[in-house]
Structures are given as C-alpha cells and as structure tokens.
C-alpha cells in the first residue's frame, strides 16, 4: 500500500470519527491489465481518490460500485471484465479481467 494512501487515511481518521472511505485493492488479474494484484486506491465519500488501480473505464466502474458500498456500509468484491464487446466499445481494450476488493470504513463489518 502506498505511503500516500496510509497518510491520507490517518488524516481522515484524525479529522473525526466515522468519516467514510473505501480502500480498493486488486486481488487478482487475468490477461492484460494496467495494474496487478496488490495495487490499492483510496476513495473518499466525496469522490476524491488517491492512488490508482489502473485508471480508465475499469477504475471508473469500481469507483461507482465503491460509492454504493459506502452507502450500504458493506465490503464486497467487484469483478471488472475488460474482454467483452462492451468493454471494447467503451475503449477498455487492455483485454483482461480483474477482481477488486472494496473495503469500506467505517463499516459494521470492518475494523
């Protein structure tokens, strides 16, 4: 995890208890993806982000899902498919699949 992300999380925690954020981590990838397992990104409820899990439409899709997860206060896994026709039309031509864990803070299920 980037130090920048850790620094921002600590800042958020210092600002006050219960400020929502999500930590997005690539768990695994198949085929061609811009980033590999272990890449992390921080997303705040305001939409502000730190770090990247690859950018482009794939990342945008995960961010969308993360906003929902923050509302629901539940962690989940989101699979991004960049190999189908829709993906190609959207310009996601990398040609891979990635599995991203959306870890929500604070959540009933998170520490």
């Amino acid at each position: 995890m980037d130090k920048l992300i850790l620094q921002r999380i600590c800042e958020l925690e210092q600002m006050g208890e219960g400020i929502p954020f999500a930590l997005l981590t690539i768990l695994s990838t198949k085929g061609s993806t811009p980033r590999k397992a272990g890449a992390t990104m921080l997303m705040e409820r305001t939409g502000r982000t730190f770090g990247t899990i690859g950018g482009g439409c794939g990342e945008a899709e995960v961010k969308q899902r993360a906003l929902m997860a923050m509302d629901e206060q539940t962690c989940c896994i989101h699979r991004v498919n960049m190999v189908n026709d829709v993906a190609a039309e959207e310009g996601m031509v990398c040609g891979g699949i990635m599995e991203v864990f959306i870890q929500v803070f604070p959540g009933s299920s998170c520490p």
Binding site: T74, C75, S109, C110
Partner: peptide
C-alpha cells in the same frame, strides 16, 4: 459470516 468481511 459476511459481517467479518474486510477484517484485517
């Protein structure tokens, strides 16, 4: 056990 998801 879904409530445990995200534990570290």
């Amino acid at each position: 056990s879904r409530a445990s998801l995200g534990q570290m």
